[in-house]
Design a protein around this nucleic acid. Structure first.
Lengths: 230, 230
DNA sequence: ACAAAAGTGTTAGGCCTACACCCATGA
DNA sequence: TCATGGGTGTAGGCCTAACACTTTTGT
């Protein structure tokens, strides 16, 4: 039954890719976890992940996991660290190439495993399987670093969003609060936001201004090197 | 002879750790390369690296490589990316966890392989074996990012150094030039430099002020979160 | 004598921060 | 009418960037 057909002169570790999937619901950052149905860590929550095939890169493997859980193929996925502690998996030597994905919650459909998958706000995340607590901490740190250089916020928001939502997102990721006017000024001065036409419903109730991300302007900015000061 | 004793149900990639070793000679950034003596890429230059043992982490493996080539045990080593392209090694599937190390050139003794190892300035680096060109590019980018947040410069300089050397280092890594006075002011204001006593040789020839890195002050700064603006 | 490198201050402009009130809406 | 959230401008301080000359030393 369990034939062992792949033989090597020296021992090889198993290699997996894990995918920390972040979403944003307008108020707080969420992460998608899966409840483990088997030992080890049965009943504990963990990130989607799985063994890397021989004909795919780590990132492709992470994207595969992402698609299985969310149905999304084109989200932003980035590798951030490889965890190789000798005993991180109690069964055998497994090293994992950890990625994070940023997804728009509105576009996510439950995947195959929907039954055992759930979104958790950061302050609700339980103690996780394997070394996934550490992986989450590092993923969040990377997110904090990166949001100051790249407009990753827009990967997490719907196409059209309000300034307040954008501010909530930055505050949630960086765990700080900003003065509203200063945040407006800074973002608008950057020039990577476009106002969307407020549809002129005659008696429409007063709605906040909606914005859209201006990818062209951003490309220009990036050329020159830019940094968001927070 | 080549018995294949380690068997698995599914194929496993080989895992290596590579170590991009950076040094600084007072003027330019150097990287330590090793000339390959065997195929593939025989005669081409590559970073030190090797297969990960089953009882060591990727970082430990990278440190082992570092020590073999330089004799150094306590240098700063940091993992920065895992390269997993399917065909990056023509022989078999190999993924590599890439690290960079920052060393003080003055402390480096030639390692076992001294004959085939050589320091190259960045603008002399030849085309490299495997995907090591790409690895080098990414290592340099990480270095650029990191030098704005952490005083990694001090890992590359001798214990005692002049302001000009420090400036040359920043200029070499960031590939820019700074106004000397502004650089002085910024660095001194940060407060992480200590002047060393100029030894009062009576008629010593005029020497530039020497500085030393003040680790305590840096620890305080880091607490509060700091950033170097360049 | 000349070239090369160290050392040193000031000014103007831009950016960040702190801060308060009005309006529209929905309850 | 009251509570909530959106929208808006200014003034002060700090940091950044630009800029030139003198001194010392070695050649």
């Amino acid at each position: 039954m369990s034939e062992q057909n792949y033989c090597y002169k020296y021992p090889h570790p198993s290699v997996t890719a894990d995918c920390v999937i972040f979403g944003f619901d307008g108020v707080s950052i969420k992460v998608l976890l899966i409840e483990r149905g088997v030992e080890p860590f049965k009943g504990k929550w963990a990130f989607p992940g799985g063994f890397m095939n021989m004909d795919e890169t780590a990132e492709e493997c992470a994207r595969r996991e992402l698609e299985e859980e969310t149905g999304l193929r084109d989200a932003s996925v980035e590798q951030f660290y490889t965890f190789s502690d000798v005993r991180r998996d109690p069964r055998e030597r497994v090293i994992t190439v950890a990625h994070y994905a940023l997804v728009k919650l509105s576009e996510v459909k439950g995947g195959d495993d929907a039954a055992s998958a759930r979104w958790f706000a950061m302050d609700e995340v339980p103690s996780l399987a394997f070394d996934h607590d550490r992986i989450l901490r590092m993923a969040l740190n990377r997110l904090k670093e990166r949001i100051c250089f790249e407009p990753i916020g827009f990967e997490l928001l719907p196409e059209v969003f309000t300034m307040t939502e954008l501010q909530n997102l930055y505050e949630a990721i960086l765990e700080v609060t900003f003065d509203r006017r200063n945040f407006y000024n800074k973002m608008l001065k950057l020039g990577i936001l476009m106002e969307t036409e407020p549809r002129p419903d005659g008696a429409a109730r007063r709605t906040p201004t909606k914005y859209r991300f201006n990818a062209e302007k951003y490309a220009e900015l990036k050329q020159k090197g830019f940094r968001l000061e927070f």
